[in-house]
């Protein structure tokens, strides 16, 4: 049983709740500062949802706990999407403090100016897969015109609630990785895919998971399992922030973790050729979807564009001993042009 099923039960009530929560949003700026006055029902349930998200140690623990009906904190178009969002936030959001007023305000407040994006050191530390995801998040935030500052920390991956970079600190909230950040921004009313139909959204999500399953794994494979790259680049960069012999221990431990992950996904036994042909296929389908358009879905960017840009740009600009991944990528001129377009329009603007 999944979280999805829990939400499913309330499908017939969805209309009522949507109206309630929008009603609440309207009144919230007035009602919330007074903590003594009882919060509205919608506010209470939103708070409960947040508390559940925040206090849950993992995905699993929430399944058993939620017995009473819960309202949906975010405006999603269908329950499947809602469940998807909750699932993501479960793992990747952390928040300080239990104060109901503060929490609800934080959830509904507009995007603050002092948002910081934390990532590893770009020059000497960051690795190919991390760099791609950091760039993707940066691209997404720039596409949304959300202000943020990049802050580099050696221990960014240990600070992150999910253990992966990058993460943003937005008020009391800490949110990591692209998709939770997208959901988090959507909660604040900032979304790139509002005009898409449900089918298009499903398609977009499918492409995004294609990238996570193929490009990310290929990057991990090249970085950690390809011996030339591992010895010449990964080992040195990953241990650069630690004193000897801690760097060696950490690098070894991380390599084992990555190998375990790839083994579970049946990528560990692949040869480099197989990995590259998988990448080739993935790029083919992305190129086909992109076609001659500026962006994947019409004339404005979506988070899929941010993700594709992050990976394509990182792969073609990073110099590695194993040049073949970049060569495969370069053959897809559509994708390279797309990456250049995003770079020009969103990163090089004053």
């Amino acid at each position: 049983m999944s979280v999805y099923n829990l939400w499913d039960k309330e499908m017939n009530e969805a209309k009522l709740k949507t109206s309630l929560s929008s009603d609440w949003v309207f009144h919230s700026p007035v009602a919330t500062p007074r903590s003594s006055s009882p919060p509205s029902r919608a506010g209470e349930t939103i708070f409960n949802n947040y508390i559940d998200i925040i206090h849950s140690e993992s995905n699993l623990s929430t399944e058993a706990k939620q017995t009473e009906p819960l309202d949906r904190p975010f405006d999603f178009f269908d329950d499947e999407e809602f469940a998807f969002g909750i699932n993501l936030l479960n793992n990747n959001v952390a928040c300080v403090g239990d104060n109901i007023t503060k929490l609800i305000q934080m959830a509904q407040e507009p995007w603050p100016d002092n948002v910081k994006l934390f990532q590893p050191y770009e020059v000497e530390q960051i690795l190919l897969p991390d760099n791609a995801s950091c760039l993707a998040v940066q691209a997404f935030l720039k596409m949304c015109n959300l202000p943020f500052e990049v802050e580099m920390r050696w221990n960014a991956e240990f600070m992150s609630p999910s253990g992966r970079v990058p993460f943003i600190k937005c008020g009391a909230f800490v949110v990591s990785e692209l998709e939770p950040i997208v959901q988090f921004a959507a909660n604040k009313g900032v979304s790139l895919c509002g005009r898409l139909s449900t089918e298009e959204k499903a398609e977009m999500r499918a492409y995004m998971s294609l990238i996570t399953n193929v490009l990310v794994n290929a990057e991990l494979y090249i970085s950690w399992l390809d011996n030339d790259t591992y010895n010449a680049v990964t080992k040195i960069r990953n241990s650069s922030v630690y004193p000897w012999p801690l760097g060696w221990l950490q690098t070894r431990a991380k390599r084992n973790t990555v190998a375990k992950r790839l083994k579970a996904l049946h990528w560990h036994d692949k040869t480099l050729e197989q990995v590259l042909s998988d990448v080739e296929q993935c790029c083919n389908s992305l190129s086909q979807r992109l076609g001659d358009k500026d962006y994947f879905f019409g004339n404005t960017p979506t988070e899929l564009d941010a993700l594709v840009f992050g990976h394509v740009f990182t792969i073609i600009t990073t110099r590695l001993p194993c040049r073949r991944l970049a060569e495969v990528m370069r053959r897809h001129e559509g994708l390279v042009a797309h990456a250049k377009r995003v770079d020009e329009r969103h990163f090089k603007r004053p």
Partner: peptide, 15 residues
């Protein structure tokens, strides 16, 4: 998940 950000900042392995 409710750990203060200041504490979060000091996480990571050290020798």
């Amino acid at each position: 998940k409710t750990t203060s950000f200041k504490v979060r900042e000091s996480s990571g392995p050290q020798m």
